[in-house]
Structure formats: C-alpha cells, structure tokens
Design a protein around this nucleic acid. Structure first.
Length: 744
RNA sequence: GCGCGGUUAGCUCAGUUGGUUAGAGCGACUGUUUUACACACAGUAGGCCGGGGGUCCGAAUCCCUCACCGCGCACCA
C-alpha cells in the first residue's frame, strides 16, 4: 500500500496546473468516442443501459466567435448530460460542430472591411468568399480551444463544419427534394429588405420596435386617408374601404375618381375589401402593394397593379417626380411640406404609437420589397411537426416551450430561404434571365429556361444559415447511409438556448421529419439567457460582458461549471455574479482537502478487506448516502441538474465533511471502531467523486488519478479514468453500489 | 390585440403529484485559530410566499380575478 501522500495534495488545489493536463489525459484515452468502452464490465443484467446509444449533437458554434458566458452554460449542461450517460454505460456520442453563421459572420467581416476603408460591394464575390473563409478558419482555432477549456468531453474525431462538402451535399439534396415535392417555390413576393445590408430576411430576423411618430391625415379627393408613411404614397391609385362601411356606400367597387395628388392630378380606383378596419382612422386607405404586406395581399386579391416606389438603397424612384433620388428618411418632411402648401394635409397626430420593423443587426427600418426569391411552403411541414409534438414524441424541458412551439407552428408563414450575401452555401439553381423562373440544378446541367426557353444564369444567392443548420442532426450523422446515422439517429437530446426555439429547434423538427421521416431528437432541453450580476442582458455597449474564461482562470473551470448549474432551472435566465463562482472555487478546495484527510488517515488501511463491518452510526450514514444517490439518479434522468448539484454540494460539505469526517477523527484517534470510520470515509469519498464528476470533472478526475494505484491493486495497469467509471446506482429503484473498499 | 413566463429572506433563486415549525447559496451578525481545510468551524437574525376572492380538514402549491415586471407573436394603413 502506498503510504506517502503526493506532494501536490499537501498544497491547495490548483486548477490552472491541473486542467490542461487532465483534459489531455482524457483526450489521449480515446474515451470521448462512443466506441471506446468504459473499463467496467459489460453486464446488462446489472445495467440495462449498457451499450445503448445516447446521442447529443452540440449546437454548432459560430466558428468566428469567441466563447461567451452563454457558451459556458451550453458546454456545462451538455457535458453534464454526456458524462452522466457515459458513466451509466451508454454508448455516448457528443458530436461537436462549427457554424459558418452566414449573415452573422458576414456582418462581422463587413465591419472589419469598414475599418479598413473597404466595402463588400467593391469586392468580387468569389474573392470576398475566400477572404471570409480564411478569416473564419483562422478564428475557429480559438473557439475550439476554448470549448476544450470548459472540459467538454465531445468526440472531436467526428467534428463537423456547416460548409463541409458532405454537409453541403445533404443540404442540396433536401433542397431538391423540397422542389420535387413542390414545397419550395420561387416567386415574386413581399420580403423583408434591409437597405444597409442589402439582403432579404425571414420574419425571424426582424425586430419589432415600438415608436412614436407622426400620423398624417391627407385629403385624397373626397376622402381623408391616414398614413404614417407619406413617402410611399406617390404611386397610390387605389383607394380602399370596407364593403360594409355605411359611410362610403355611395362609392362602388371599381369606380374611378379624379383628384389632385402630390405631384399633380391622378385618377384613382375605388376598391372594396374587408381587410380594411372601419374603426381605424377614417376607414379609408390607399395602398402601396410593393412596400406593404397587407397592401400586397389586397392587390393580389383584386389583381391590381403593383409599382415600386423605393429602391433597394431606400431612395425614391422616378415615380416620385421632383423627389426622385432622395432618401426616404429625408424626403418625408419635404413631401409633407409640399402637401401642406397644396392644402392636402387635414391634420397631423404627433403621438401616434406604432410598431416599426427593424433589422435585428443594424436597426435599419425594414423596407418591404417585392422580390423574386426562394420560399419554402411551411404549412405541410409544420403539420407533421405539430403531430409529433402534440402526441408527446418530442418532450420539451421546460414544458411550457411546447405551448410556445405549437403556437408558432400553427401560425407559420412561408420561409424565405435566399439571402443576398456571399458568405453561405450557394443556392444550386439557375435563374432565367428572361422570365425570372428558378430551376433547381444540382448537377449544373440546365442551360435553358424550362418555361420560356430563355437564357439562364447561376443563382447568386446563398441559403439562410438556418436552412442548413436546420438539417444538422441528420446531416452530421451522415444521412442516409452513414453508420452513425443508423446507430445514433434519432438523437436523444437537443440542448440549446430558448431564444432560438423557432429559428432552429422548430425548423430542425420540420426538416428532420421531412427528410428522414423520423423526429431528429426525443427531448428538447432549453436553457435561459446568462445575464450580468444585476440581471441585465450583457452587451458590449453596456460594458457588462462577463468573459467566462476570466472566471475559470480565477476560480477554476469546475467552480464555474457547478456555479452555472446550481439553482439554474431550465429555461430561466441566470444572473452571473462573480461571488457565486468564487464560492464554488472554495468548494473545489474543500473536496481537495477532504481527500487529503481521507488518504492521510487510510494509508495503512487495507481497502481490499471486504470484512469491514460498519458500526451503527456509520451504517446509517452509509445507507443515507446510498439513498441520496438513488434520489439524484432519478433527478439526473429528469434533467434536474440544478437540484442534483445542490444536493451533492450540500451533502459533501455539511454531512460528509462536517459530520462524518469530524466523527471519524475521534474514532481513529481513540482507536475505537477505527476500521469502520476509515472504511466509511473512503467509501463515501469514492462515491461522492463519482457523482460529482459530471459537474466538476477536473478536480474529481485529478483526485481519482491519485486514488487509482490504491484501488487497482493486482489489476492490469491499463488506462483508467473516473470519466468512464460506473455511476454508483443502476437506476432510481435499484440498490446503490457505493463503490469503496469492498469494490473490486 | 393574442400568446408565454414571472412576482417566495437584503441579493440570486429552489420548493416534484396540495399535508406537520417554507429551503439553499451569497450577504449580514455573534463567537471559535479544535491536529484536512480561516478557501475553516459552531451558532444567530431575517419571509402575513404580489393584492383580493374561491375549493378543501388543510394552499407558496389547484381555480377565478386584479396589479406590476419580462419575453414572444401580429398586415390596423
């Protein structure tokens, strides 16, 4: 028996010195891969789970970003799940990945260009793509090393990037399938256009912003119309009212009237449509179908003309006459001035509260535009998803996200998947130069337009990032023929931020079901936002961003991890205060010091002696811990990490250290039931290290490696690690195996 | 307007199917340098569980209602 304590155990726990070494030990062991089996014996009579797959696909991290507090939470929660399942004997796969993060990255790169005095509109697209690719790949090394620092036990050999050729191939096949099934179409539809970023968006990239603006009442022939956007009114030649509105019953649908308008006399046509709210304004409005969704729909219903008033840069077109070429921001006041001179302004309400749609990145007011784009018909896809969610095949944690998802899916709109940016997966399609028709063309074979015979050109647009990441679970596993796909799909858990429930989670369900016929994951675990100590959202402008790596550097990764998880219920945002983490740094040291005591006092103790009989109170303590382990095992299976971590923390500190160790001192000193005491402290330490490991992997593994020579007497000296040790309970109802001196 | 959360100790939050004196961490206060640990130990104080109503033998927990805070969705020009 080794009777000397290692030198380092005599000093306080030093996370800095430990973490990199331990991570390397794990990585070298190969245990991150599901195929590399735990060292304990496969006995399914003892463990029903042994060898069953457990799959978690990591949300692909933005390759060009750096680790923020939110990532810290993701890596912690997912690693806890994965380490726990691995210790339970599951064939555990945690697949890491990187995201090219299309628009996000492009915006970052554009800012960089701006600083260099360049702009993307002057750079040849191919070259720009190469530049961003280079930029992204360089930065990706950074994020990958940071993920390692968090202790993530993911299988790096299976790492994927959203632009990998095999991923792109699958994305293309899905696009083709959607097209073949008539679920993707190209058409002139209103899209949300950002004039700064020169791209269209889906409805999710838009932020609603409440504003107080002027609301103008304008004389329009015999009517008074209300508008907050006079700059769009140049082309308005339809005046619409509700057919049931008694006030205007004398005007007939289709009737023409002549009137004086901004730039002279015009002829307008009366249109009756029920979409007009009789209560709002005067109950009469004119429409601008090119720049307003509601107006567009009215125009479609009545087959009305649509004219573009504002160009893609937000400037007025020649239809605006003397105002042509002016930016709409500046033009509004001038137009009102002119209307006032002409006596066409009836009144102005200066306190009009309404909602303006803005670009989520730059805040520019979104200008709806009619554009020829690719759209996915969502209704049929959503219906299938709703079925699976409603019948409980996909479980949400916390539960209320189920309701939120159902609500969104039930009111879903078609999805504009084309983006006018270079950084992304190019859309494999030809566009007819003559008629604008779009044809999916994976093999680059189409030379003439199928509908008009005109010349075709390659589509210059790229896919919305979420179109490719929406296929992530089956794409990363190599659908349809990959071995991993067959073994690990459907995956078990999708763990991600509640914020992207629609962007990502719901779309993965729809696309996964559509392509593979199966749900992509059985459980959705959604975590909340990580906020600053005061509960405010972190932002660079507020200067309250907390860098997780500074905290892990100061207090250790273990302290950070358990601090992130204790008391943090799923879905709830977390206020990250430094004292919180500092406190758990003390806990890591407490574990370290308790270990020193146990090893120091049991060095002469023969732990292979199975004859030890606990005395009365030790027996009680032994049973108490076994009961606790059963309890937390159940809670682990219910994803209640916040309560498990707290229970273990509390037991370790206030029962094991404060009561059991204190009690043992007396017994050992007086040599009264000393063997019982020694056996108990050793056994409890071993069990506690195991259950603590998913939460605090570094300190527990470090101690395990010190313990190992004692535990493995007479056994082969092969690589062994706590991360593949057996969890000390089979399941909630079974008898716990507390490990300890009796274990072989 | 519709939907989803939240309101519990000074702060951050737990509280599972309703059951005896409502919990944790941090903070505060009082002691103690006891041979693993002062990154410690022993202890103390602090809550009409947002307001009102109801069901029940019994409600922080279930139902109704109001108030306030947060978030999401929406084509009222």
């Amino acid at each position: 028996m080794d009777s000397k304590l290692p030198e380092k155990l005599l000093k306080p726990f030093n996370p800095k010195e430990t973490e990199e070494r331990i991570y390397k030990l794990w990585e070298d062991s190969g245990f991150f891969a599901p195929e590399v089996h735990p060292t304990w014996v496969d006995d399914s009579s003892l463990n029903e789970n042994f060898g069953k797959p457990f799959t978690l696909i990591m949300p692909p991290t933005n390759a060009n970003g750096s680790l923020h507090a939110g990532h810290g939470l993701v890596m912690t929660i997912e690693d806890i799940m994965v380490r726990y399942k691995r210790m339970r004997g599951f064939k555990t796969l945690w697949l890491p990945g990187l995201d090219h993060a299309g628009f996000e990255t492009q915006v970052v790169y554009e800012k960089k260009l701006e600083k260099e005095g360049r702009t993307r509109f002057e750079i040849e697209p191919k070259k720009l793509y190469e530049e961003i690719l280079d930029f992204t790949l360089t930065n990706s090394k950074n994020i990958k090393s940071q993920v390692r620092k968090m202790g993530a036990s993911c299988d790096w050999s299976r790492e994927k990037f959203t632009l990998d050729p095999d991923i792109v191939k699958i994305v293309y096949q899905t696009f083709k399938k959607l097209s073949d099934d008539n679920l993707v179409y190209r058409g002139n539809r209103i899209v949300s256009w950002c004039s700064k970023h020169q791209t269209s968006f889906s409805d999710l990239e838009i932020l609603d912003e409440e504003r107080i603006d002027n609301f103008y009442y304008l004389k329009y022939g015999p009517f008074v119309i209300g508008t907050s956007r006079p700059e769009t009114k140049f082309g308005d030649k339809y005046v619409v009212m509700n057919p049931n509105d008694e006030r205007y019953k004398d005007y007939k649908d289709g009737q023409k009237i002549k009137l004086e308008w901004i730039n002279g006399p015009i002829e307008a046509t009366i249109v009756k449509d029920e979409a007009v709210d009789m209560e709002f304004g005067t109950g009469v409005m004119t429409i601008t179908p090119w720049h307003d969704t509601a107006d567009f729909e009215i125009a479609e219903r009545h087959k009305l003309d649509k004219e573009q008033i504002i160009d893609e840069n937000g400037k007025l077109l020649p239809i605006a006459g003397e105002f042509a070429g002016q930016h709409i921001k500046k033009a509004r006041a001038l137009i009102i001035e002119k209307l006032q001179k002409k006596g066409l302004v009836e009144k102005i309400n200066e306190k009009y509260k309404h909602v303006v749609r803005t670009c989520y990145k730059c805040g520019t007011v979104i200008e709806p535009q009619i554009k020829n784009q690719w759209f996915v018909k969502m209704k049929p896809l959503a219906e299938k998803a709703l079925e699976k969610i409603n019948n409980g095949e996909i479980k949400y944690i916390p539960d209320h996200y189920k309701k939120v998802s159902i609500h969104w899916l039930s009111n879903i709109m078609d999805w504009n998947i084309s983006r006018q940016i270079v950084w992304g997966i190019p859309i494999p399609a030809k566009i007819c130069v003559k008629c604008g028709a779009g044809m999916v063309d994976l093999d680059n074979k189409i030379k003439k337009c199928a509908s008009c015979g005109g010349e075709v050109a390659q589509d210059k647009d790229t896919f919305d990032t979420w179109f490719s990441s929406g296929q992530w679970p089956f794409a990363t596993l190599g659908y349809p023929d990959g071995k991993d796909f067959k073994t690990f799909y459907p995956t078990d858990v999708m763990e991600t931020a509640g914020e992207i429930i629609f962007f990502w989670v719901s779309r993965m369900i729809m696309l996964g079901l559509y392509v593979t016929g199966e749900i992509p994951f059985k459980n959705v675990y959604l975590h909340g936002l990580v906020l600053d100590a005061k509960g405010l959202k972190m932002s660079k402008s507020k200067g309250n961003v907390i860098d997780p790596l500074i905290l892990t550097g100061k207090y250790g990764t273990d302290a950070f991890r358990i601090g992130m998880v204790i008391g943090n219920t799923p879905g709830t945002s977390l206020a990250l205060a430094e004292e919180r983490i500092r406190g758990y740094g003390k806990f890591a040291n407490k574990i370290w010091n308790a270990t020193r005591f146990v090893l120091d006092n049991t060095k002469d103790f023969n732990n292979s002696n199975t004859e030890i009989k606990y005395d009365e109170e030790d027996k009680k303590s032994d049973e108490e811990l076994k009961k606790l382990v059963e309890e937390i095992t159940k809670e682990m299976d219910e994803y209640k990490f916040y309560i498990v971590a707290e229970k273990i923390y509390h037991y370790f500190w206030h029962t094991f250290a404060d009561i059991i160790i204190e009690r043992s001192k007396k017994k050992i000193l007086e040599n009264k039931n000393a063997d019982s005491a020694k056996a108990l402290v050793y056994s409890q330490l071993v069990t506690l290290l195991k259950v603590l490991h998913p939460f605090m992997p570094f300190v527990t593994e470090e101690i395990w490696q010190i313990l190992l020579p004692r535990r493995k007497v007479g056994e082969p000296t092969e690589m062994s690690a706590l991360m593949v040790e057996k969890w000390p309970a089979r399941n909630a109802s079974s008898i716990a195996d507390a490990g300890g001196p009796e274990s072989k």
